[in-house]
Amino acid sequence: MSKRIDVTDLDVYYSDFLAVEGVNIEIEPRTVTALIGPSGCGKSTFLRTLNRMHEVIPGAHVKGSVELDGEDLYAPGIDPVLVRRQVGMVFQRANPFPTMSIRENVLAGVKLNGGRLARSDEDAIVEKSLRGANLWEEVKDRLDKPGMSLSGGQQQRLCIARTVAVAPDVILMDEPCSALDPISTLAVEDLIHELKTEYTIVIVTHNMQQASRVSDKTAFFNIAGAGKPGKLIEYADTTTIFTAPSVQATEDYVSGRFG
């Protein structure tokens, strides 16, 4: 688990509209990379290209390459479903399956991928995944209760457990704490620190303090104006981005002068 991501000359289109232009970035295994920038600058669009989730929108396509340990995810014959198994995603709002129990939520991805397991094997995956999401002790006595019965922060960690259960190489997170209270946010941030020992993690966040707390590297995206493509402006160690960025626009953004 945990693989390197190499993005080269990536342009992202929605039909004829160029949404993100010319991204070149190298993301190391077992690191947390934060994507920051003003609304509409292409952060989430770029994030979704890393597991081809943007393709759920008709007409979406890319030019350039996204490689996972040297394998181009957009090469002919590559199955997007398998890409999304390798590169899991946690969304902005917790989205447990409403008709499923906590246990069934954790196993949903495994079963969707055709996994037929003995009950004992399923139990092992459930416990390991919930422990991995730092949720086991809180829910181990009520696994048959609905996933929706959990608090917002617990639901988000349940979604992380569901992602971890299919053993991905990379975990993408699109503003995973934006709907959470400070205590739940801290729990998810602590979890991110633990998960990076096994996974490559890329997170979109509008919270500058969160980016500085959880990430090893930070990528600043910006946009020149309405109708223009988003661009990667600067990418460096998080400490550098927040204390000595090389581009004025980066300093203006992280210091709160705009955005």
Score class of each variant (00 low, 15 high):
126 V>M: 01
117 L>P: 11
97 F>Y: 12
79 D>W: 12
125 I>W: 06
90 V>R: 00
109 G>P: 02
104 E>D: 11
97 F>V: 10
115 G>R: 04
83 V>N: 11
116 R>S: 13
121 D>C: 08
120 S>T: 09
77 G>L: 08
99 T>D: 15
109 G>V: 07
83 V>I: 01
105 N>H: 15
87 V>F: 04
102 I>L: 14
109 G>H: 06
126 V>Q: 12
113 N>D: 09
103 R>T: 04
95 N>P: 00
110 V>Y: 05
88 G>I: 00
104 E>L: 03
91 F>T: 01
91 F>H: 06
100 M>H: 01
120 S>L: 14
81 V>K: 14
84 R>V: 04
80 P>R: 14
109 G>K: 14
83 V>H: 12
103 R>C: 09
94 A>C: 07
86 Q>A: 03
85 R>N: 11
82 L>A: 01
108 A>C: 10
125 I>H: 00
91 F>V: 12
83 V>A: 03
87 V>C: 10
103 R>P: 10
86 Q>N: 15
99 T>R: 15
80 P>T: 11
107 L>D: 10
90 V>Q: 00
84 R>M: 07
78 I>G: 04
112 L>E: 03
122 E>P: 06
117 L>T: 07
121 D>R: 07
102 I>C: 05
112 L>K: 15
111 K>T: 05
81 V>N: 01
80 P>C: 05
122 E>H: 12
105 N>C: 05
112 L>V: 08
75 A>R: 08
86 Q>D: 15
77 G>H: 05
75 A>C: 08
114 G>T: 12
78 I>D: 01
99 T>K: 14
93 R>I: 13
87 V>T: 02
76 P>C: 10
86 Q>G: 11
98 P>R: 03
98 P>K: 06
111 K>M: 05
87 V>D: 03
75 A>I: 05
111 K>V: 12
108 A>P: 02
113 N>I: 10
101 S>Q: 06
85 R>F: 14
